[in-house]
């Protein structure tokens, strides 16, 4: 019974996964680069933690922090660059 439930769960999740992959690849490319840097900051940081205040670090520190987050949180290079520029400009 337990194995049956596991298999059903596996199938459901695999199905959702496949649909999401297809949807992701088939959609029009709405360029991330067209989004404002503030929007990217609001959408990405909050995926793990609250959105940071630009005043929390100085401009030089933001270089280090965003590089760290690009690697740890798997941000795209374009997102990391725009978020860094936003933090530095709003600081």
């Amino acid at each position: 019974m337990k194995m049956k439930l596991k298999n059903i769960l596996f199938l459901i999740i695999s199905g959702i996964f496949t649909v999401l992959v297809i949807n992701s690849c088939a959609s029009q490319k709405a360029a991330v680069l067209e989004k404002s840097s503030a929007q990217l900051w609001g959408e990405n940081c909050v995926r793990c933690h609250s959105t940071p205040s630009p005043a929390s670090f100085n401009d030089v520190d933001w270089e280090t922090v965003t590089m760290h987050m690009q690697i740890r949180a798997n941000l795209t290079a374009a997102e990391a660059t725009k978020i860094k520029e936003f933090m530095q400009s709003a600081n």
């Binding site: 949807n23 992701s24 690849c25 088939a26 959609s27 029009q28 490319k29 709405a30 360029a31 991330v32 798997n74 941000l75 795209t76 374009a78």
Partner: peptide, 8 residues
């Protein structure tokens, strides 16, 4: 990471 379609 990379952008793919409208997602990532």
């Amino acid at each position: 990471a990379a952008q793919v379609g409208s997602g990532k």
